[in-house]
Each structure stands twice: as C-alpha cells, then as structure tokens.
C-alpha cells in the first residue's frame, strides 16, 4: 500500500492518484483535516509495530511499501479535562502538547524509514531560506548578496550605494484574513518590494530584523522540479510584463507569463543535485534566476512546491513520473 500525506485540495495529488489507480496500486490518502483517533505502538526485536486509527481509516505501517510526503500533517486533538485550577490546567495542556510533539516526531522518523518521496521531518521540511542559501553556496551555487538589518541607518547606507535591493520575507508568504461587512476577505502575499519603496513607508529607527537582497537583473526565472536526481526545468520570461519585474507571482493573469521548456547546463544540474543530497531531499521545487550577466543564481527550494504548472507547460508528465517512482519503490 502507498501512503500519501496531503492537503484536502491539491490537484497534483488527485492527478497522481489517477495514475496509481491506473497501475492498480492500493493507496491510503490522509489529509491534514483528518485527526488520529487512536494509536497502538509496540517495540519488536528489531523495529516497531505502529498502528493508527483515523475516522474511517486504519493505518498499519507494516503495510506501507512506499510513502509520499506531499503536504499536510499527522494531527491529534490535544484536550485537557475541564474543571480544576486554570493555571495548572494550562501548564498541563502545554505538557501534553509536548508529549504529542515528540510522539509525532517519532512517527515521522519511522515513516522516513520507508522508501519515500519527500520527507515529513520538521527540520527538513520547514525549509529555512537562510540556511539553504548558505548550503547552496557551499555546493557551488551563486546566491544573491543577502543582509538582515534591524536599523534604519543600515538600510539607508545600502540605499546610498545606488545599487538596487529588495526586501524579502525570511519565512514563508504572509497570509491574512479579515471580516468586513459580512464578507471574509483573504489575502496571501509574497510580494517583494524595492528598498526605496520600503523606506518610503513609515519606518522607525529600529524595526524587526528584515531580509534585504540585491536585486538581480534577470533574463528569466527558472523553476526546476527535482525528483530522484532527475531535473525538469522551465524558464519563465516574467520580464515581458512590467508589473512582474520583481516577482512573477504579482501577475494579474496567472499563466500569461511566457513559459518555455529549459535544459540546465550540466554543471548547474550537478550542483543542484549535490545541494538536494546534502539537504536530504529527493523531491522539491527549486527557484533560480538567470541573470542578464549570464549567472545562474539560486533563490530557494520548496520541498512541497506545486508542479502541475511546470508539468503542463513543458509536457513533462510529472504526475506520471511521481506515480511511477512510488510504483518502483513499492
């Protein structure tokens, strides 16, 4: 049986499952909205027996021949009995949360023993952009000049150099929702701003540590889907549209940026492969920029990035490739 941990809505997962069905391979999909209801773990002479029950689903790790960590999580509702001293109950709640966190970590570690695509382990999956930039450099890839500042004068000094810089999030994109007049609004933004625009806002002398990177004049952007040492690359000519010069996700008509199939030079492919190996990932989406001065510059890796866009525009059949990999593992 093939285990898939996923989010409830994910086209790529549905498409891969269609292929698993075609191969007549049994699978179990657990979405992040589903909670574990009971757990039975027992130590054996060489390993562990691990059995989980979710609503309407049973998972025995002995049956799992291959595993795809796509997104999502293993979740358990942490509840503390009502009544009693609130201050003590709160501390008890924190303690039980800690207990679950360790158990969850153990479950993911055991899952990592199974042949898999992706990796649910926190330290690998919660990709740290700064650590990964450092690692990419160690592997011989170019990275943008990067600073973290918390004082306005440092930002101004950079501005005075006359070179272009952008402000960028250290973690993931920010998503917010709010209610107004009976409607709920939702906005997710990853958009990067220029340093001038940043300074034109009301910035105090001290601010929260913020990431600043040199703005690279790009010829095109590159999206690379990496799967078990194979690289599937696509170039995005986002500079065609003025509005997307800083970040192509700002494009109003998604999909309108010109995309074209791309073959990376072998030297760059080798460096990316080395980077993924050191990071312990056999699957992920890597963003690079090809600069106008001819350099390939690594930006970031997303271990669970969307790939159907790359697959469709380049006819890479990535959904088939993922399903075939799971088939070969099992």
């Amino acid at each position: 049986m093939i285990l898939i941990l996923a989010e409830t809505i994910d086209k790529s997962v549905n498409d891969v499952i269609d292929w698993l069905t075609y191969f007549k391979l049994p699978f179990l999909r657990i979405n992040e909205s589903e909670f574990i209801q009971s757990i039975r773990i027992e130590s054996r002479s060489h390993d562990w027996s691990i059995k989980l029950e979710l609503e309407g689903k049973k998972l025995d790790l002995d049956d799992v021949k291959a595993y795809w960590y796509r997104r999502g999580d293993l979740k358990m509702a942490v509840k503390v009995a009502a009544g009693g001293e609130p201050v003590l109950l709160e501390q008890l709640h924190f303690h039980i949360q800690d207990e679950w966190a360790k158990l969850r970590e153990f479950l993911f570690a055991r899952l990592a023993d199974i042949p898999s695509i992706g990796n649910g382990l926190i330290e690998v999956n919660a990709a740290n952009k700064l650590k990964n930039l450092q690692l990419a450099k160690t592997c011989g890839l170019d990275i943008p000049k990067t600073y973290i500042f918390s004082k306005k004068k440092h930002l101004q000094a950079l501005q005075e150099t006359g070179e272009s810089y952008i402000l960028k999030g250290i973690s993931e994109i920010i998503s917010m929702n709010w209610k107004e007049g009976g409607n709920t609004y939702y906005q997710a933004s990853s958009h990067t701003v220029g340093i001038d625009e940043g300074l034109s806002l009301e910035v105090g002398d001290h601010f929260f540590p913020s990431c600043i990177q040199e703005k690279i004049e790009k010829e095109y952007e590159l999206r690379v889907f990496f799967l078990c040492n194979e690289l599937f690359a696509m170039a995005i000519f986002s500079q065609l549209s003025e509005a997307t010069q800083t970040d192509n996700r700002m494009e109003a008509y998604e999909g309108q940026n010109r995309c074209t199939l791309y073959k990376l030079p072998d030297t760059i492919s080798e460096k990316i492969t080395r980077f993924m190996k050191v990071l312990g990932l056999n699957c992920g989406s890597i963003d690079l920029i090809k600069s106008v001065d001819g350099r390939y510059i690594f930006l970031e890796v997303n271990p669970v990035g969307q790939f159907n866009y790359v697959s469709e525009n380049c006819n890479y059949q990535l959904e088939f490739q993922v399903a075939k990999t799971l088939k070969d593992f099992s």
Binding site: A235, K263, P265, N315
Partner: peptide, 8 residues
Amino acid sequence: RFPKMSMD
C-alpha cells in the same frame, strides 16, 4: 538551453 517540447 531551449529544446523542443516532447509530443508524447
């Protein structure tokens, strides 16, 4: 760097 797309 810019091969043609597969027609598969």
